[in-house]
Design a binder for these strands. Structure first.
Lengths: 240, 240
DNA sequence: GGTTAACTCTGTACGGCGTACAACGTAGGA
DNA sequence: TCCTACGTTGTACGCCGTACAGAGTTAACC
C-alpha cells in the first residue's frame, strides 16, 4: 500500500517513512515509476501515460503500479515535481533584476518546451513537493532587488510565470497540426463566403497574425514582445 | 451524417448548407445539443459532458448525438464558440484605450468565471467560429488608439487575454478544494519536518501568499496587481 | 402512386480507461 | 517455525468514445 502523497513527494528525504521491511521488496522503485512516466509523456504525450502502458514499460503488471502511487492523479503531481527538481535553475551572479527575471523566464520556457505535458497538470498539491519548493525559492530570489513585500513578490513571480505558460502554450504543437493544412484548404473558401466583408479589422489583423505565425522567426518575436512588456511592467516606478 | 465543423460553426448563416430535406427531421437542433452541453458543463464540469449523458439530457439516444456532431472534440469547439457569441461585448463609447482594455479584461474574466470549462478547451479551430471572430474584432478595436501595426496589435490582445486566462485559472475552484483542509491538516506537520529551516524565503513568502489567498479580498488584489501592470506595459512610450 | 434514395434514429459491440478486490507468494520478526 | 506484513497479479466493474448495421421515415423522382 503506497504512502501519502506528501511522503511520496519527499521520498528521498531522510525523514520520509520508509515503509516496513517485511515482505518482498518492490521490483521497481517509486522514482523509476515516475521517471518512466515522464519519459513516456515526453515521447508521446500525457494522454498515453496510462497505468497499463506504464506497467508495461516498467515490466510489471498494471496493478503493481498502484504499489507506488495511490491514483493516477498522484502520479501526475510526482511527475511535475520531478521535472521541477531536475530543472537547471538559472545562475544569477551579479546580474541586475531584469537579467535575473529574464533568465528565470528563459529557463521556464525551455522547461515547458521540453515537457509540454506540464501545461496539462494543474494540481495545487504540486506546490508541496521538494522540487517545486526549491524552484520557487530560487525564483523568488530573482526579485531580491525590487521593493516588493512578500505578497507582492509572490504576485510578481506568478505574473512572470503565467506569461511563460501562455507563451509555451502558444508554441505547443497542436496534435491536430498535421491535418490542419488540408482542413484549411477545405475551409478557406467557405469561411470567406461566410465572412464576406464583415469584420474587416479582424480579417486584416487575423490574416497578418496568421501569416506571421508561419514565419520561422515568429515565436521569438512574440516572446520578445511579451517578455519586454513583462519586464517593463515590473519596473519599480511605473510611468506617470 | 453531420456536416463539416466549419459549417456547423456557421450553421445560422444564410449561406450555410442546410442538409438534404429527405428523411425525418432531427428531433433536436444542433443548437440545442450545444446549449445542453454548455448547461451541463456549467453545472457539473466539462468532464461530465459525455456523449451518453448529453443524449440522456436531450432525451435522445447516445448515438443520435452523432447526427449533429462528428466527434466529441467538435462539440467542444461549438461550445466555446457559442459562449463567445453570447458574451456581452463591452461598450467603448468615448473611453480612452486604458478604460477600453480594462473593460475587455473585465468582460473576459466574467466569462471565464461563469464558464470555467472554457479553460479546458484549447482547440485552434475555435478561431474560425462566428462568435469567436466577432469577439476578436470587437476586442481589437479596444486598441484603436494605440500605435500598433497589425501583428503587434494581435500580440497585444493576446497578451491581455492570456493574463485574463491565467487569472481565471487561479480563481477557479479546484475540484479537490473540499478535501484540501483535511489534507492540509495531515500534511502541515510533516511538511514542516521535511522543510526544517531550509528555503526561508520560500517559506515566508509562500506562507504570506497562502494566508492572503484565504483572505476574502485576495482575488481582487491579485487581479488589480496584474491588470495594472498589463496596462502599464501597453503604454506607447515605455520608460527609459 | 409507387419506388427509391437520403436521412434520422437506435442497439450492439469493441477496445480502451481507472481502479476495487481477493488470492497468492515472499520475506523478516517472533 | 509460524505469523504477519507486504508486494504481485488476474479478474472484474463501470465508465468512456465511437464504428457499424439495421430499421424507420420522409421527400423527390418516374
Amino acid at each position: 500500500m503506497p504512502r501519502e502523497l506528501i511522503d511520496l513527494l519527499w521520498r528521498d528525504h531522510p525523514a520520509a517513512p520508509q515503509g516496513g521491511t517485511r515482505g518482498p521488496r518492490s521490483r521497481v522503485t517509486t522514482g523509476a515509476v515516475v521517471d518512466a512516466a515522464c519519459t513516456l509523456a515526453d515521447a508521446e504525450g500525457l494522454a498515453t501515460v496510462t497505468v497499463r502502458r506504464l506497467g508495461e514499460a516498467l515490466g510489471i503488471s498494471t496493478m503493481s503500479v498502484y504499489t507506488h502511487v495511490n491514483e493516477r492523479d498522484d502520479l501526475l503531481v510526482l511527475m511535475a515535481d520531478a521535472v521541477y527538481a531536475r530543472m537547471p535553475l538559472p545562475t544569477y551572479g551579479n546580474a541586475d533584476w531584469r537579467t535575473r527575471v529574464r533568465r528565470v523566464a528563459d529557463a521556464n520556457l525551455a522547461l515547458h518546451l521540453e515537457h509540454p505535458w506540464l501545461l496539462e497538470i494543474d494540481d495545487e498539491r504540486t506546490a508541496f513537493g521538494p522540487g517545486t519548493i526549491a524552484k520557487y525559492d530560487h525564483e523568488l530570489h530573482a526579485l531580491d532587488a525590487l521593493p516588493l513585500d512578500d505578497v507582492a513578490r509572490d504576485a510578481a513571480l506568478t505574473f512572470v510565470l503565467d506569461f511563460v505558460r501562455a507563451a509555451a502554450r502558444a508554441r505547443r504543437r497542436d496534435p491536430r497540426a498535421d491535418e490542419m493544412p488540408q482542413v484549411w484548404a477545405r475551409w478557406a473558401g467557405r469561411l470567406a463566403e461566410y465572412l464576406g466583408a464583415a469584420y474587416p479589422l479582424a480579417q486584416r489583423v487575423g490574416g497578418a497574425a496568421g501569416e506571421e505565425m508561419n514565419a520561422a522567426s515568429s515565436p521569438e518575436h512574440a516572446w520578445e514582445f511579451g517578455l519586454a512588456r513583462v519586464l517593463d511592467s515590473l519596473t519599480p516606478a511605473p510611468p506617470p
